[in-house]
């Protein structure tokens, strides 16, 4: 049986419960998932280049480095990588999002709390376009 090539997803969220849930959901959805609660650690792993990711799922509000900043840093290494931002905040972040990413082809947005099915659907859609 040929091994299916699975899409690789990087999940970063400072709440351990969230990384658990998102990892499990996406794995159930057929993806390969690496999850980190520390954005700085995630960045250094990305830099060391062991893996290439098809998609990023990033929480925005994190201490040390927020999701937007992390994405900017990652883009310096791979500027084609796509990402989905997760936020629990309201309009404030949609504004900043609109400012930072006026052309939103590679990035999209989801508001927490997120249903497992919705997450899988969204990632499927973004990965396959």
């Amino acid at each position: 049986m040929a091994k299916e090539k699975k899409n690789k997803i990087l999940v970063v969220d400072d709440e351990p419960d969230n990384t658990s849930i998102f990892s499990m959901s996406l794995e159930d959805g057929g993806f390969e998932v690496d999850a980190y609660t520390d954005p700085l650690l995630a960045l250094s792993m990305f830099k060391s280049g062991h893996k290439k990711y098809d998609y990023l799922v990033l929480d925005i509000k994190m201490p040390d480095m927020n999701g937007f900043e992390l994405y900017e840093e990652i883009r310096k290494i791979d500027n084609k990588v796509k990402a989905c931002f997760l936020t629990a905040f309201g309009e404030g972040y949609t504004e900043e999002f609109g400012r930072r990413f006026p052309t939103s082809t590679n990035v999209s947005f989801m508001r927490k709390p997120i249903r497992v099915d919705d997450l899988v659907k969204k990632v499927n859609k973004m990965v396959n376009t």
Partner: peptide
């Protein structure tokens, strides 16, 4: 803003685990 963010965090966990 902060209160709603704080509330969404445990809510996300409850919903997520309940789904899974």
């Amino acid at each position: 803003n902060i209160a709603s963010h704080e509330m969404k965090t445990p809510t996300q966990a409850i919903i997520g685990y309940a789904d899974l």
